[in-house]
Design a protein around this nucleic acid. Sequence first.
DNA 1: AAAGCTCTCAACCGCGCACCT
DNA 2: GAGGTGCGCGGTTGAGAGCTT
Length: 262
Amino acid sequence: MGRSPCCEKAHTNKGAWTKEEDERLIAYIKAHGEGCWRSLPKAAGLLRCGKSCRLRWINYLRPDLKRGNFTDEEDELIIKLHSLLGNKWSLIAGRLPGRTDNEIKNYWNTHIRRKLLSRGIDPTTHRPMSEPTLGTQKVTTISFAADDQDQKIKIKSELIETMSKEEDHEIQERCPDLNLELRISPPHDQQNQLDHNQRANSLCFTCSLGIQNSKDCSCSTKSSNGNGCSNIISMNMNISGYDFLGLKNNGLVLDYRTLETK
DNA sequence: AAAGCTCTCAACCGCGCACCT
DNA sequence: GAGGTGCGCGGTTGAGAGCTT
């Protein structure tokens, strides 16, 4: 079976875009808007694949792009968001107006990784490099399982080992503003008893990150069609210390990358 | 001056997901 | 439910600019 190729490779240009190609693409999108990337190249008279056009527009030609160096504030925000989201570059980019996922990904790999390494922080785990990765740390595994009836998400959490308060304090001292305290919401059954209005007011994950109108948004704030937030995740986030999944009271540290989707 | 090396980042590739038929 | 299509994402590549010797 297999997937059909996204374009006829024999008749498409590859490599760097010429000024003329850029101008054609800009003119076409200005006249017809974004979308229908597959048919766009032919309509615009470009010998490019649709994916290539989309990428060129999103990463380079879009008028709202902020070109130039990243500020220190942007650096720190990227680090914080990466510590929470992992390599979810598109989500991270959503918090940085004018920056693209590709740009942030490149910047991370070329600059920030090195910056963190020079600080003695593992850029993957965001933990001090001297600290063992397993054994002494507290690992929380969360699995999301959609309920057939109401699409609610069950969350299970298992603690593997507890971290001593001294170790916890030490990390806080080394990374004073890297506050990743998290919280788990009440169990599924208890959650059913929550007041409906209270649930309607909670934000989904993407809205909690400030990415309103995202396609990932599933909460009631997105539309008025009656779709409540299907996630029972209630996350209050600010940079100085958000409360994800309700773990705050227990002082747990949760690594986004351990989240397991079922 | 030039050869070799390193770094940067635009672009490509393959895959997964959502939607449609 | 299966297959086809389109889009978006994350990982990777490679050309060219910059730096070092």
